[in-house]
Every structure is written in structure tokens, then in C-alpha cells.
């Protein structure tokens, strides 16, 4: 059991939609992996590329980014700005051997608790299929 690969996942989620959905999933007792670490940010538009790099270089097997559906962003369009930036950072990390599948951006609305759970489970499974991050057990200088 302990040998089985349990992906470590960082979920960067916006306060208004996806975090609310995650919270809803929690109160509705919709279970997903305990290895998902949710980090609440105000908006996905706040996500600095550094955060994603930091997570990947520190050994996250996957980085999930959850924002509001387009048009629902509390800050009008932070989610779309995030999408643009993340596409770039994805292009970069994949060239260093990080499968772009390790970085996933999804829109999950505030009332979509089940949607959050489904996304977490799907991401967890897809990372599990990908296997451990290339960073694992390496000393990243």
C-alpha cells in the first residue's frame, strides 16, 4: 500500500469560484485525495509564473489551477489573463521534461462542488498514470 504512488498535487484556486467550490465539496463530504493541497488566491490572474515553477521544482507531481468561468471572474477577466500566462509557462516547463499534463487549468464555478471533486479525481488519476514528477528524489539546485 505504502509503495503505491500517491501524487502530490498543488491546487491554486481563486477565492471566489473554485475555492468556494472546494469548500462546498468539503462541506458536502465529496471526497478526493488528501494529497491535494489547496492554496487560496484571490484570483487566478494573481498567479505569478514563479508559483508554478516553485511547485514543480519543489516536487509537486501536478499543479491544478482553478478559476471562475469566463465572464464570472470577480475581477472581470483575471482568469483569461491567467490562461494566457499559463499557456506560456506550460510551453516552457514542457521543454525541461515536465509533461504539460502536470499543469492543468480549469474553470469551476462557486456552486460546482461536485465539479471540483470530479476535477480533482480526474487530475489525480491522470497524474497517477503519468507517474512521479521527474524532480522526485533529485536535488534541484
Amino acid at each position: 500500500m505504502s509503495d503505491e504512488f500517491e501524487p502530490k498535487i498543488i491546487a491554486l484556486v481563486c477565492n471566489w469560484c473554485t475555492y468556494t467550490a472546494a469548500d462546498l465539496a468539503g462541506t458536502s463530504r465529496l471526497a478526493y485525495s488528501a494529497n491535494v493541497r489547496i492554496i487560496r488566491l484571490m484570483c487566478t490572474g494573481m498567479i505569478d509564473p514563479k508559483y508554478i515553477l516553485k511547485a514543480l521544482l519543489d516536487g509537486a507531481d501536478g499543479v491544478f489551477i482553478g478559476g471562475c468561468h469566463p465572464g464570472d471572474c470577480h475581477y472581470i477577466n483575471g482568469n483569461l489573463k491567467a490562461k494566457k500566462r499559463i499557456s506560456g509557462i506550460s510551453k516552457i516547463v514542457e521543454q525541461f521534461g515536465f509533461d504539460p499534463e502536470r499543469l492543468r487549468l480549469r474553470w469551476i464555478g462557486a456552486s460546482e462542488g461536485p465539479e471540483f471533486q470530479r476535477n480533482m479525481n480526474e487530475f489525480f488519476e491522470s497524474i497517477k498514470a503519468l507517474g512521479s514528477t521527474p524532480v522526485r528524489d533529485r536535488m534541484i539546485l
Binding site: L41, C43, G45, I47, H74
Partner: peptide
């Protein structure tokens, strides 16, 4: 919202309580 902080390359702009080092 922090869009400014995310686009600022050297963290000259930051959001209180969501500063780069903290996150």
C-alpha cells in the same frame, strides 16, 4: 485581484497577504 502583481516581473507590485514570498 493581483493581476498587477502577477505581471510585475520583480515583485515591485505586490498584494498584501498574497506576497510572492509568502505564497
Amino acid at each position: 485581484c493581483g493581476t498587477c502583481a502577477a505581471i510585475c516581473p520583480n515583485s515591485a507590485t505586490l498584494i498584501v497577504d498574497f506576497e510572492d514570498d509568502g505564497i
